[in-house]
Design a protein around this nucleic acid. Structure first.
Lengths: 204, 204
DNA sequence: CCAAATCGTTCGTTATATCGAACGCTGGTT
DNA sequence: AACCAGCGTTCGATATAACGAACGATTTGG
């Protein structure tokens, strides 16, 4: 036993431990010209622990990280995020919106979301007149469609199941099978739809 | 050596444990309408632990806090600040849909989909009165926010850049930095917002 | 040269964070 | 009512983070 690389059990929820937390701590400590003993005295954390933390051999308690952060005159968040800092803005304005119409001409689908990029979803603005019906053929495998009703009342049918949603409600359903949206209200309906494409499978 | 440029009191007398960490966690959990069991499943943390954390009966491990933060779509730092910023105050609607209000009370953010965690994105219904301002602290690294204006005119500011969008237009911008949405129109504004959380990829 | 000091690491013990199961409670259903 | 499902809490066992002391390896200076 004793010192072994020890792979973290790390459930299926992804990387929980910041990989280079120890490196960051050590970098800060050395930036202040502190020895382990000194930092231990100033932070109140045993130097053995600091040593282990710097080598990522332990999974520190929140209070420990806070004490170290305070002693190093910084915040927990800054310690966690290391030095990777990037900020640029990316904007995309819409002009010349392509539009789709249903067979009965009563539904209009405006593509507002990012269609051209690698994002794993697209989204649409959906308008339906009274009794309008939109039938869709299957989308790619694993696609999930999210429908948020802004006004009116819509009914979604997929795989034999039918669900109803009024204004302010949201529906979620499989879109990799034929599905149908019907405006069952007495007025026109307005909804926003998001298509979530399956990009990455669960590692299970 | 050892001449610290910094005069730290460094006596560990400070509050090493954030007193209201539990309250913040609970507030976030309830804002997403999650039960302890659900959050446990999504975060990978035992629900008993979450219960104890919310009542400040334990001193959580860093990895635990990180897992919870990720599941709650926020950062460790934001969880730790919690009380200080209080960008939002909770508000429960009659229909059970959790709602967030901006500081000035002029903006309302309704969480539409509880689907956020599994699908790596979530979305909101956004209503802003005239001159309403919504300030958001950074979301997790790599998060991109999509804003689709249904009615009115909104202005988004991120990292010093400002972009305008009218009804029918969409904006896309980084959300892992502080950002602000302002209703600059002469009427109330309505928009739908989608947060695309980062999927694991190579950080360039 | 050889102590003395100090560095970072490692060891044994204690404290406790975490987990899973079981618990009582409440709200909806037959 | 009685039932069931789901909530939040509590409880025992286990894993492990934290601590203090001791350890070799440097460096210092006498």
């Amino acid at each position: 036993m004793s010192s072994r690389p020890r792979t973290r059990t790390s459930d299926a929820s992804g990387p929980d431990t910041q990989a280079d937390l120890g490196k960051t701590i050590q970098r800060l400590r050395k930036a202040y010209n502190l020895s382990l003993g000194e930092l231990s005295e100033q932070s109140g954390v045993a130097k053995s622990i600091i040593s282990q933390i710097e080598r990522n051999e332990t999974n520190p308690t929140l209070s420990t990280v806070m004490r170290l952060s305070r002693a190093l005159d910084t915040t927990v968040d800054e310690v966690l995020r290391g030095e990777q800092q990037s900020l640029f803005i990316e904007h995309q304005t819409k002009s010349g919106i392509p539009m789709l119409e249903s067979q009965d001409g009563k539904c209009k689908l405006a593509i507002v979301g990012p269609l051209n990029l690698v994002d794993s979803f697209q989204w649409y603005d959906f308008h339906a007149q009274e009794k309008g019906v939109l039938e869709s053929s299957p989308h790619p495998q694993g696609t999930v469609e999210h429908l948020y009703v802004v006004t009116g009342k819509l009914e979604v049918t997929t795989s034999g199941e039918t669900k109803l949603a009024s204004a302010g409600e949201a529906l979620r359903y499989r879109a990799d099978v034929p599905h149908k949206i019907v405006n069952v209200g007495t007025t026109a309906a307005h909804a926003v739809m998001v298509l979530a494409l399956k990009q990455f499978g669960t590692p299970s």
